[in-house]
Write a protein that binds this DNA or RNA. Structure first.
Length: 371
DNA sequence: TTATCCCGCCATTCC
DNA sequence: GGAATGGCGGGATAA
């Protein structure tokens, strides 16, 4: 998220590191915590001593500007101090950032009900232990929408979102819904952005809107990752990271989950298929499948594949050499969606096996070379 | 006027 | 060098 101990002018020199007094906003030329000097931070619910930020500043009056030190000290602050309320001014001062930076984070946290607005500048902090309940409710909400055939964009906004704005909060909820509706619980920001573009936004200028959406999703993903709802993973053959939903147990902590490379490879393979030839292109599916057990059959694999499909789905057509149309036992053409799902399932299973064998092969080769 | 929110530029980091 | 990442300011809008 967009929080940093220092800030610099918009036009910055290309320095890797800068020394800036902690707690000072360069553009403002004033200590950021000066306007909190009248705050009784304890009374505001933040259980930290008054002038906590000022003390920190004195203790380490200069800190190296380092972008790798990513923000989100926000959540750390509340875990450590066990606070019940969030005073935006105090948090902004403590972290040495402008308050508008905090709004973004709070809006996202609000979408998963970790905080709720109490009054101006003050939010209730519900704690991470509420997450399982929240997620269960979101799943239920998603299920209801699926039953009604509604899309993500038609999800009812929360009460707090009905007034102007709160788009970040709503976007955050839709992002979570994307995970909940996916079997593999993995998605890249690029994919998410594409799916979360409103129909009206797809019409023109969608490249700019797509980039903006990705920018917002970075913010959301960082916050969700910081509370442990998702985790960032690197695909084996791509620089593009993906985010994976993490299971949360009833105590609000994450269940231990192993993320095998095979899972990612399957995601990658599926992703390539989706963004490449159409899933309805049975030939493209057949090609990948034919490389498995039928590989040794040479060019007969295509024929075998078709025969196999015929047997399984009951292909029946007037001219089998040209038509791919498939029929069920009552001679009714099978709906494309059914074909699509069937082929997806088969490819998914094939890729799982393939990656398993591939990893096994590499391991064997490695141990052989070690000897 | 102030609080809040949205947008997107562009610097930095990473591969 | 280009893609990923994220800091940050301008400006709009609601209260």
């Amino acid at each position: 998220m967009e929080m940093l101990v220092t800030s610099t002018k918009r036009k910055r020199s290309r320095k890797v590191a800068q020394l800036v007094p902690l707690g000072f906003n360069v553009s403002d030329k004033k200590p950021l915590n000066q306007n909190t000097s009248n705050y009784d931070l304890k009374a505001d619910g933040l259980n930290i001593p008054p002038y906590f930020g000022a003390e920190s500043m004195l203790q380490s009056s200069f800190r190296e500007y380092n972008r790798k030190e990513k923000s989100l000290g926000f959540l750390k602050l509340f875990r450590e101090h066990n606070a019940r309320e969030v005073c935006l001014d105090a948090v902004a001062a403590e972290l040495g950032v402008e308050r508008r930076r905090i709004y973004d984070i709070v809006n996202i946290l609000e979408s998963i009900h970790l905080v709720s607005r109490k009054s101006k500048n003050l939010y209730n902090w519900h704690g991470l232990s509420t997450l399982p309940t929240t997620i269960a409710a979101m799943k239920e909400r998603h299920r209801n929408c699926s039953v009604k055939g509604e899309t993500l964009h038609e999800l009812p906004a929360l009460r707090s979102e009905r007034k102007r704005g709160k788009s970040l909060s709503h976007l955050s909820q839709m992002f979570v819904d994307l995970f909940l509706q996916r079997e593999d619980r993995i998605i890249s920001l690029d994919d998410a952005a594409k799916q979360l573009l409103l129909p009206s936004e797809c019409e023109n200028n969608n490249d700019r809107l797509h980039k903006t959406k990705i920018r917002r999703l970075y913010d959301i993903a960082n916050v969700l990752a910081s509370v442990g709802l998702i985790e960032k993973l690197q695909l084996p053959h791509s620089r593009k990271p993906v985010f994976r939903w993490r299971q949360i147990d009833r105590e609000g902590s994450n269940e231990k989950q192993d993320v095998g490379q095979d899972v990612l490879a399957v995601y990658e393979a599926n992703h390539r298929q989706r963004s490449g030839p159409s899933w309805c292109d049975t030939d493209s599916v057949k090609t990948s499948q034919s490389c498995n057990s039928e590989a040794e059959d040479g060019d007969s694999c295509g024929v075998k594949k078709r025969e196999s499909n015929t047997a399984q789905l009951g292909v029946q057509s007037g001219d089998q050499s040209n038509s791919v149309l498939r029929f069920d036992s009552s001679h009714t053409p099978i709906h494309p969606q059914e074909i699509l799902q069937s082929e997806q399932k088969r490819l998914h299973e094939f890729m799982r096996k393939y990656v398993e064998e591939y990893v096994q092969h590499l391991a064997t080769a490695q141990s052989a070379s070690d000897l």
